[in-house]
Design a protein around this nucleic acid. Structure first.
Length: 499
RNA sequence: GGGGCGUUAGCUCAGUGGUAGAGCAUUCGGCUUUUAACCGACUGGUCGAAGGUUCAAAUCCUUCACGCCCCA
């Protein structure tokens, strides 16, 4: 009744024969069992119950899960069932089960989904165990699990077949539970401050909100091109114009760039906007958020990441872009640090590519990226980003060469980017024109002119500050994960070849 | 895009030119308190793909695929 691929492993073929027998015997995939407790509920509830007390009370339980351990010792066996909460041991005795069931059970395999009903007791070593009155096979597993001791180590298989990784690697399950807890903490933190969570379009007609290359898609019925968003920024600020003075979105962005341990084509960002605030207010807020997160997730303000140690309990360091450039390039002439020709010379010495349309601000940031970024190990706010490369940021009142903007670095990586928003519609229009000029000069990362966004600003965006936080990188930090793929359930991979 | 490393049984891994290996898992037998259970027997491979060198290739060479790391 089953078509068997010729190259199918003998292990799978063996299990398929068992499934055939199950089908012949009735419903091989029943869905009428209901459990009354998870493993951890039982472990917690009866933690103080002795074996005698458990046997006295005859506590009836119904448990189910994946059979991860199977130890047959003649006429009795121990198995362990793994459910979403943990594992619970079950003891099966031939003479304590309905006639013939024990012999049937012996054919079941590690990996099968099994249910058991019975009463609780403790073994000689004190392990809480269900003495089974009844056991059932709920789902036959056709594929053998990886070896029990070493688990699944192969990176490629862990990423491609995450379900197997999650079955056998507790550390991997823990990473994704922590990820969920981090996002839940952030939501609670913001909700407590009266922020409104919103969702804005993933598919956009105009690319904007960040300097990056977009993915393009096509709407058939409308016969038009659409961009997958590179940022939600402009839409969120439209909402502030609309009177939602505190908004945030936690969602995916898409950037058509390289893949690395730090980059996935789609990644998750928290972006938030707050009216009547400036970038200094958001620096304070981010410090409070990160401190609270560390205490909540790790139970301490000390974050250990890949051999480095960061204290989230104290205010973070601050430097300006120019200070960083001068610190890591001590030979630079401070008097000429905004001189285009001089900076071109520095870039050439550093073997940084320079284009004709680069102004001093762009050149400065190229030098920063090349020489400074990786040195920013301890949590550090970098401020005063050049206006030239910050088309949506408010100019600094005293020094319009730079904006009231910061980026936040830990371990040499950008974690967040925030600024006082540019709410002058005429200045914003000029900045868009500059972006369009860059685009025409061949810069495929430049923004388009967003007429509707200018119109929104013309209605009046209150003085506002905003911030974007890379959630994946934050999760990496708090789970000590070396690669972004370790914190993405299904990281981007080239297609697998099935032959 | 460039460089380095990797791909051998279901899983974890040995194997540097001369008969393809181990542990776990599977299969069979034994065992009524195991904890990577234990004891005994057996089984399991187009060595990532294609081509080349050689009397002989998992091993050397070339190309390709996929993955990991570093750099741009």
């Amino acid at each position: 009744m089953t078509d068997k691929p010729q190259d199918e492993s003998k292990l799978i073929a063996e299990r398929r024969r068992k499934l055939d027998a199950l089908r012949a015997d009735g419903n091989a995939f029943p869905n009428d069992f209901r459990r009354n407790a998870t493993a951890d509920e039982l472990q917690g509830t009866f933690v103080d119950h002795s074996d005698e007390k458990l046997r006295e009370e005859k506590i009836q339980v119904a448990v189910a899960g994946r059979m991860m351990v199977k130890r047959v010792m003649g006429k009795a066996s121990f198995i362990k069932l793994q459910d979403r909460s943990g594992q619970i041991q079950v003891r099966l005795e031939r003479d304590h089960l309905p006639e013939g069931l024990y012999a049937t059970f012996k054919k079941w395999d590690v990996g099968d989904i099994v249910a058991a009903k019975g009463s609780l007791f403790r073994t000689q070593t004190g392990e809480l165990t269900v003495l089974a009155d009844e056991v059932r096979l709920l789902t036959k597993s056709l594929r053998p699990l990886p070896e029990k001791f070493h688990g699944l180590a192969d990176q490629e298989t862990r990423y491609r077949q995450r379900y197997v990784d999650l079955i056998v690697n507790e550390e991997s399950r823990k990473v994704f539970r922590t990820r969920s807890a981090i996002v839940a903490y952030i939501r609670a933190f913001l909700d407590a401050q009266d922020y409104l969570e919103v969702e804005t379009p993933m598919m956009q007609v105009t690319k904007g909100g960040a300097v990056a290359r977009p993915f393009t898609t096509h709407h058939n019925a409308l016969d038009m091109s659409l961009f997958l968003r590179i940022a939600p920024e402009l839409n969120l600020k439209r909402l502030v114009v609309g009177g939602f003075e505190r908004v945030y979105e936690i969602n995916r962005n898409f950037r058509n760039e390289g893949v690395s341990t730090q980059h996935n084509p789609e990644f998750t960002m928290l972006e938030l906007y707050r009216a009547y605030a400036d970038y200094e207010d958001l620096i304070e807020m981010l410090e409070a958020l990160l401190h609270g997160l560390a205490e909540s997730i790790l139970g301490t303000a000390i974050v250990r990441y890949q051999g480095e140690e960061f204290n989230f309990g104290e205010p973070f360091a601050r430097m300006t872009v120019e200070e960083v450039v001068r610190k890591y390039n001590p030979d630079i002439d401070a008097a000429k640090i905004r001189d285009r020709d001089y900076l071109v010379g520095v870039c050439k010495r550093l073997r940084v590519g320079v284009k004709d349309n680069y102004g001093p601000g762009k050149l400065l940031i190229e030098i920063f990226d090349k020489t400074g970024e990786h040195e920013l190990r301890k949590p550090t706010f970098i401020t005063q980003y050049p206006t030239e490369i910050s088309p949506l940021s408010r100019k600094n009142d005293a020094d319009p060469f730079v904006t009231d903007r910061f980026e936040f670095f830990i371990g040499g990586r950008e974690i967040a980017n925030g600024f006082s928003e540019l709410n002058d519609p005429e200045d914003q229009a000029e900045r868009f024109h500059a972006q369009v000029a860059d685009a025409e000069a061949g810069d495929d990362e430049a923004m388009a002119f967003d007429h509707d966004y200018i119109r929104a600003l013309e209605y009046g965006l209150p003085p506002t500050a905003g911030i974007g936080v890379g959630i994946d990188r934050l999760v990496m930090l708090l789970t000590d994960s070396p690669s972004i793929r370790d914190v993405l359930l299904f990281p981007h991979m080239r297609p697998e070849v099935f032959d």
